[in-house]
Amino acid sequence: MEMGSPMSWRMIPERYGLIGTRCENCGTNYFPAREVCKKCRRKGKIVPMKYSGKGKIYSYSLVASPPRGFELEAPYFIAIIELKEGPLITGQLVETENEDVKIGLPVSVVFRRIQASGEEGLIHYGFKFKIDRK
């Protein structure tokens, strides 16, 4: 979907800075941010929380048929990453060959271009993940 400037800008703290939230009442961490704790609801005490960007691969898929806007990058890996702080999050894996990818491998966040609105439009940045090499 075409994304306008206001939509892209208001997501900068989360997408650039990995700022999510945490419920101080029950200790559950949320990324992306939630303003209502799923467990405590109105009794929850939600505060901002910065995430480390460290995690491991929980599941992955090599996307060969891309959606509109991702044609040049295909094929690319989409993964669900289990962040060190607990939440699962969806993102692309970069600089990765087929045989490298396995469930459980440690990854770190990297800052990348995600997509652009139209040919000369606004570039939307955000996080992707890279497998940690020893």
Partner: peptide, 9 residues
């Protein structure tokens, strides 16, 4: 915002 934006289908 959190799946399709990232390139998931």
């Amino acid at each position: 915002e959190w799946e399709l934006f990232m390139g998931a289908t």
